[in-house]
Simulated scan of single mutants.
Amino acid sequence: MREQDRDRDGEGRARSGRPRDGLGRPLPYGAEGVPRQPEGVVRTPAETVAQAQGLLDAGMPFHAHEVFEDAWKSGPAQDADLWRGLAQLAVGLTHAARGNAVGGARLLRRGADALAGRADAYGMDLAALTGWARGLARRVEAGEPVDAAAEAPRLSGPPEPV
C-alpha cells in the first residue's frame, strides 16, 4: 500500500477507516460495522460511567475502553489512573471475548491492580470491579469462553430491570 493510500485524519495521523465489529475487530472495507466512538470527547465522570456501561451492556467493551480512554486523557490528573484501570478492564474483556486468553487475563489483572485499594469513585464499587476482573481472568485462563455482553460488569448501582 502506498503512503498516500493510507487512512489519515485531518492532521495527517494514521487512522484506520475500516469498519469494526462490536469487539473492535477490523472488518473488510465496505462491510457493515458498528459506529465508532468519536475520539477526544470530554464528558463528566457520570456521563463517562453511563456511556461506558451502555457499551459494556451491549457487548461492546472495546468501545467502552475508548470512552474510558477519553476520560483519562481529558480529565483531572488525579483521576487518570482510575480511568486507565477501567480502560484496561474493558480491553481485557475485549481480548477475552475474542478468544485471546493470555492477553485478556493479563489486561484484566493489570486493570484490577490499578483499581485495588482505591476508594470508590463516581458511584463505582472498585472493590467489586477488582474482584470481577480477577475472577474473570481465572476463568479465561481455565479456557472458559467469554460472551462480552453476558460478562459485562456493573460499574455502579443496581442492574437495570429487564
Rank of each mutant, 00 (worst) to 15 (best):
V41N: 01
T44L: 02
T44M: 00
E47G: 10
T48F: 07
T48R: 10
V49L: 09
A50S: 11
Q53L: 03
D57N: 06
D57M: 01
A58H: 07
G59M: 08
P61D: 12
P61C: 13
F62S: 13
H63M: 07
H63A: 14
H65F: 04
F68I: 02
E69W: 02
E69P: 02
W72E: 15
G75C: 11
G75Y: 08
P76C: 03
A77H: 11
Q78R: 15
Q78S: 13
Q78K: 12
Q78F: 09
D79N: 03
D81M: 00
L82Y: 01
L82T: 05
R84G: 00
G85T: 10
A87Y: 13
Q88P: 04
G92M: 12
G92T: 14
L93D: 14
L93H: 15
R98P: 10
N100D: 15
A101H: 05
V102N: 00
V102Y: 04
V102P: 00
G103F: 03
R106L: 05
R106M: 07
R106S: 03
R106H: 05
R109N: 13
R109P: 05
R110K: 14
A116F: 06
G117Y: 01
G117W: 04
A119N: 07
Y122S: 06
D125H: 02
A128N: 00
L129N: 05
T130P: 00
W132G: 08
W132E: 06
A137K: 15
A137L: 11
R138W: 08
R139M: 12
R139E: 15
V140H: 03
E141Y: 06
A142M: 06
A142I: 04
G143E: 09
E144Q: 15
V146G: 10
V146C: 11
D147V: 13
A149E: 08
A150D: 08
E151G: 03
A152D: 08
R154Y: 09
L155Y: 06
